[in-house]
Design a binder for these strands. Structure first.
Lengths: 357, 357
DNA sequence: CAAGGGGATGTAACCGATTGAACACACTGA
DNA sequence: TCAGTGTGTTCAATCGGTTACATCCCCTTG
């Protein structure tokens, strides 16, 4: 007779509900009901069952529970990499809210690879995750659109939800939830801040045509220039990826390449700003005395270097994604939320003496 | 007759293996065997089944699969927070290796709270994760030891594995795998590096009695002093947590508090070093010309600020944890691996002119 | 005192897969 | 012709729970 803890073949085996029932001298149905807590039960029976649970250190088998009745108890997040601060913060928000709702959090990383993304989504589908949250900056082309539409429909058919975080909506025919934040408005605000401090030649670091995040930040930058009737010089927009090394590289190259023809720098994100800052300092340029600098994202490290930047509600993004997904009545709804961003003024921008210009 | 995609009550329902079998005109057993790929089958049957799978966009139900036969296909990682770089890197390593082994990755965060940790481990136990990996710096006391021993035995009883990452071993009677890295040796090496450059008064930033990580780094620091026969001054050890703000705070306080009585700073990790660096620079002290600085962890940002530090194989830590857990024949084994650390010399330490001392 | 009713528990079907054992069929060799 | 041997497929038990329905017991109530 196999007891809890050992099975016929000798391998360890966790206690089952049957073991608990036997020990408490009741049927498995009774145990199940008492543990779910939704049924009336005699206090004495209840006591016996709970004691048996404690003695056997029983925990329910989530797979069996999921199979039999209940809902999926998990939420999946799929990111490029766990290491990047933006993703990490969103993931933290997802994790928080999932935990609050008693959900388990599944993670997948893609490294930006479409095949791995597909494989990961399939895996999440097998797991019956209640929601699959895809995060981040991507190139939106036809292939992307089609891929997402496929995911969305497949997940909806399984009673699950596709959620896009920090990406543009797919259209009314695709059942996905979209949680964005306002890149364009943020970039507009920070550019206006620089312009109103008298800067007219503002270097934009980190353009990357086709990628949604830099694209909309550039758009905000240009719109602000136009609003201030400052001529737009494409030569002030520098291409590059969104990491610190690139920031250093772009700034360094620009400084090496000739006389400085700008008085302020708007970095596409705080990582770029940090790299650029280092390059500027190495050339003996002080911030904000000699040159003004602004970033985007409001990472914790931005406060440390007194960087004026745009606050992005990273964690709120993740939390909202989970909240919407779990509380949308009919899975397969199309919803769209745009979270606000706002400028955080610190000490990296100085008013340019307009008279001396 | 409910078709795939809709069930009796109208709610969407994913295609099951039964749907596939029906469509292909075979039994469910055949479908299962063909999809598992381990059984011989007639090419024509095989074709019909695969076509049905494609047409229905069928994916297996992981919960049912797990219940019926197979092993758990998941690995769990439990960290304080996803945001901290150290945890994030380890998590990335876990995620990589798990993906390579075809495993899903479950995540839980505890925020350093023992109750949430317990709840998370229970959840992972319900999920039948093959391994539960706990990461990071903690206070080792009796309560901790007992808690871990409990986890280890409960998991072992369920055929799972407790893995401790970056924590000390629990003892021969507790069935857990431990993957550490050599904090003491790393701190010893970097302190020796400072000493051999002629520094004798080395400020240690970030002591925190009781916490394993700072404790072993302090130990390495002291051992190196002893080896060089340099008197140990407890007044040079400053208490504080391991983040950037604290680094700034500690350094700032020390500088404000009186004449500078040290020529080098050894920060307990790179975050502290970054904060300290900022405080030093604000006081007009240049690194390494006026003062030498060293850190610990070798985060990506350390390279950006040319910080001499100790390389910690964060991701390798995560990968090793997964590898050991999945390939230990008998769950419940006690194993202990210590990964090496090595000093990375950059440009934040300058030889002190011994003659002028 | 019999009928009725509600609270507490048991019985058994089911969720969607895997898998050992049985079976059908074609082919070989004596 | 028939036992023997593979191949390819199906049957049915099983994993560990949930839950609709049946059952039983005891206490009201007319």
């Amino acid at each position: 007779m196999p007891r809890a803890g050992t099975s016929a073949n000798g391998r360890p085996r966790p206690a089952t509900i049957r073991d608990v029932a036997e020990r408490a001298g009741v049927s498995v149905a009774t145990v199940s009901r008492i543990l779910s807590g939704t049924y009336p039960s005699a206090p004495t029976t209840r006591g016996r069952v709970l004691r048996a649970v404690r003695e056997l250190d029983y925990v329910a088998n989530a797979r069996a529970r999921g199979l039999a009745g209940g809902q999926a108890k998990s939420v999946a997040i799929v990111v490029n990499s766990v290491i990047s601060p933006h993703y990490a913060h969103v993931a933290q928000g997802v994790q928080d809210e999932a935990a609050r709702e008693g959900r388990l959090c599944l993670v997948g990383t893609t490294g930006g690879d479409a095949d791995r993304e597909l494989a990961t989504v399939q895996l999440m589908r097998e797991e019956h995750a209640e929601a699959v949250i895809l995060v981040g900056n991507i190139v939106v082309d036809d292939a992307y659109h089609e891929r997402m539409a496929g995911y969305a429909r497949a997940l909806a058919a399984a009673g699950s939800q596709l959620v896009l975080c920090g990406r543009p909506p797919l259209g009314p025919d695709v059942p996905a939830i979209v949680v964005e934040y306002d890149n364009t408005a943020g970039a507009h605000a920070v550019t206006s801040h620089l312009l109103s401090a008298g800067h007219e030649r503002i270097l934009f670091l980190g353009r990357r045509a086709g990628y949604t995040t830099p694209d909309s930040r550039v758009a905000g930058y240009r719109a602000a220039l136009a609003a201030y009737r400052v001529p737009h010089d494409p030569g002030l927009e520098v291409d590059g990826r969104m990491d610190r090394q690139e920031g250093y590289r772009m700034m360094r190259a620009r400084l090496d390449e000739g006389p400085r023809d700008f008085t302020a720098v708007f970095a596409c994100n705080d990582l770029i700003a940090a790299g650029a800052r280092q390059a500027l300092r190495e050339q003996g340029l002080r911030i904000p005395d000699d040159i003004s600098l602004a970033g985007f994202d409001d990472l914790p490290s931005a406060a440390d270097i007194d960087l004026t930047t745009v606050h992005v509600p990273h964690e709120e993004l993740g939390r909202t994604a989970v909240r919407l997904a779990l509380h949308s009545e009919t899975p397969g709804t199309v919803q769209h939320v745009m979270l606000g961003t706002h400028i955080v003024v610190r000490d990296s921008v100085r008013r340019r003496d307009v008279l001396s210009a």
